[in-house]
């Protein structure tokens, strides 16, 4: 018995074995790298004013965009997306006063979100403030 104890004591040391720590850590890193999905969300910002409509903001001169299915009309003239962007850009909206930056957005029933989104994006990118036109009930 005594002989065995002596032999065991010979092999014991006071240090914690840390040799495999780096292997464990690198395995953890690889796990995180493989399991992680990077989400890249892209969006447009639209701060829609809320509240009741006022006659001051909806004057005849306020630029209006009408959407009907795939058709885009800017001030009652048919335009495509590039044309809409050009016309909005020509208004130089970022330099205008707050109430002159308003663009009315009117859409017919059934207008798909794709077209609506593109119009919103064009207005937002050109510094406009979107005002949604309510349907008359």
């Amino acid at each position: 018995m005594r002989k065995r104890d002596r032999r065991e004591k010979k092999h014991r040391s006071g240090e914690i074995p840390t040799g495999s720590f780096s292997d464990i850590a690198f395995l953890l890193i690889i796990y995180f790298l493989v399991a992680t999905t990077l989400v890249k969300v892209k969006s447009i910002t639209a701060d829609l004013p809320s509240g009741e409509k006022s006659s001051q903001t909806q004057s005849d001169k306020t630029p209006t965009i009408n959407l009907k299915n795939d058709l885009i009309m800017f001030n009652d003239k048919r335009v495509d997306l590039a044309g809409l962007n050009e016309r909005l850009s020509a208004l130089d909206l970022p330099e205008q006063e707050a109430d002159k930056r308003i663009i009315l957005l009117e859409s017919a029933k059934g207008t798909p979100y794709e077209v609506y989104f593109q119009a919103l994006a064009a207005i937002s990118a050109n510094g406009g403030v979107v005002a949604l036109v309510e349907d008359d009930k």
């Binding site: 969300v41 892209k42 969006s43 447009i44 910002t45 639209a46 701060d47 829609l48 004013p49 809320s50 859409s107 017919a108 029933k109 059934g110 207008t111 798909p112 979100y113 794709e114 609506y116 989104f117 919103l120 994006a121 949604l132």
Partner: peptide, 27 residues
């Protein structure tokens, strides 16, 4: 969803605006 009609999404957008939120429309 890009194909949804106005009747479905516009009330939700208006609701967000009415509640004071700034919309971050994902595309």
């Amino acid at each position: 969803d890009a194909a949804l009609p106005k009747e479905t999404f516009e009330p939700v957008m208006k609701a967000i605006a009415e509640a004071g939120g700034i919309i971050e429309a994902v595309g």
